[in-house]
Simulated assay, not measured.
Amino acid sequence: MKRTINLVLIGLLLFSAGNLFSQETKIMVRAQAKDAKFIGTSMGGAKIIIRDVETGKILDEGLTKGITGDTEVILLSPRERYKEITTEKTAGYEASLKLDKPTFVSIEAQGPMSKKQAKVVSSTQLWVIPGKDITGDGIILEIPGFVVDVLSPQTHETISAGTEIEIRANIVMMCGCPVTEEGTWDASGYEIKALISSEGKEHKEINLNSTDKASTFSETVKLVEGDYEIEVYAYDPKTGNTGLDRVNIIVN
């Protein structure tokens, strides 16, 4: 009888010890645009994938949702140690992991999801301990770059030789924040150009200038007959941020 009781007690202890490790663990993951704010609902979010490094198994995945955050707090105020720069409304994805032992994981952010030509992948690795949540600002992954969209000319558009062609592009930060003259993201500090090439016949490089519409840049050019590729890029020499979009047209 005594032996039976002891075995039951040992079983209960082992069961309890197992439960100590088999716990739900929450991790807040955020994707922050380099030199800007957080990627959230307005840009289709950033896809978050958490994997067990040893097995490759996906432990959780989802999209960041929420607002881009407070410009003053994120960018303009002096940073203090341990002071959070996010709120409950700031874009993020709260992952929930079921772990029975400490696990070395990789955390990946892909974004922004609404702009495939601009999507960037950023990742990190860390140990996650069962029951030890990582909340608040959480894990912040930096997403570098600009989102560049060529608005004009259109893909595979046919244009008469010698006519003025408007090259027009929309350029924003990876969080969707506007690029404007003398704004928080000052267009005058960026290099925004169109590279034009045609089967070795002609190569041009022209500057695009700000327009009356925020984040929109434009210039006109005349081209001789040929098949052209137009690449529009943005470059910030202060941060190294870059972005590019391309379009192909026919001039005849």
Rank of each mutant, 00 (worst) to 15 (best):
Met1Leu: 14
Lys2Gly: 08
Lys2Arg: 15
Ile5Gln: 13
Ile5Asn: 08
Asn6Leu: 13
Ile10Lys: 10
Gly11Ser: 15
Gly11Trp: 11
Gly11Lys: 11
Phe15Leu: 08
Ser16Cys: 12
Ala17Ser: 09
Ala17Gln: 11
Phe21Ile: 12
Ser22Asn: 15
Ser22Arg: 03
Ile27Gln: 03
Gly40Ser: 01
Ser42Lys: 01
Gly44Val: 00
Gly44Glu: 03
Gly45Tyr: 03
Gly45Gln: 05
Ala46Ser: 03
Ile48Trp: 02
Ile48Ala: 08
Gly56Asp: 09
Leu59Met: 15
Ile67Arg: 15
Thr68Phe: 00
Thr68Asp: 07
Val73Met: 10
Leu75Met: 13
Leu76Phe: 15
Lys83Thr: 12
Ile85Ser: 14
Thr90Gln: 15
Thr90Lys: 11
Tyr93Val: 00
Lys98Trp: 10
Asp100His: 12
Lys101Ile: 04
Val105Lys: 04
Glu108Pro: 05
Gly111Gln: 00
Lys115Leu: 01
Lys116Asp: 03
Ala118Thr: 03
Ala118Trp: 02
Val121His: 04
Thr124Pro: 04
Gln125His: 03
Gln125Leu: 09
Gln125Val: 15
Leu126Thr: 07
Pro130Leu: 14
Gly136Glu: 12
Asp137Pro: 11
Leu141Val: 02
Glu142Met: 07
Phe146Trp: 07
Val150Ser: 08
Val150Gln: 07
Leu151Cys: 04
Ser152Cys: 06
Pro153Trp: 12
Thr155Arg: 11
Thr155Glu: 13
His156Ala: 11
Glu157Gly: 06
Thr158Phe: 06
Thr158Arg: 15
Ser160Lys: 08
Ala161Ile: 09
Gly162Arg: 01
Thr163Ser: 09
Glu166Met: 13
Glu166Trp: 11
Ile167Cys: 02
Ala169Trp: 04
Ile171Cys: 03
Met174His: 02
Thr180Tyr: 12
Thr180Gly: 07
Thr180Asn: 07
Glu181Met: 07
Gly183Phe: 10
Gly183Cys: 04
Gly189Leu: 10
Tyr190Thr: 01
Glu191Lys: 11
Lys193Trp: 07
Ala194Val: 06
Leu195Cys: 05
Gly200Met: 06
Lys201Ala: 14
Glu202Gln: 07
Lys204Pro: 01
Ile206Gly: 04
Ser210Glu: 13
Thr211Lys: 15
Asp212Ile: 15
Lys213Gln: 08
Lys213Ala: 12
Phe217Leu: 10
Ser218Trp: 07
Glu219Lys: 15
Val221Arg: 15
Lys222Asp: 06
Leu223Tyr: 02
Val224Phe: 08
Gly226Ser: 03
Gly226Glu: 08
Gly226Gln: 11
Asp227Ile: 06
Val232Leu: 06
Tyr233Pro: 05
Ala234Gly: 09
Asp236Ala: 06
Thr239Met: 10
Gly240Val: 03
Asp245Pro: 02
Val247Asn: 01
Ile249Pro: 01
Ile250Pro: 02
Ile250Phe: 05
Asn252Ala: 13
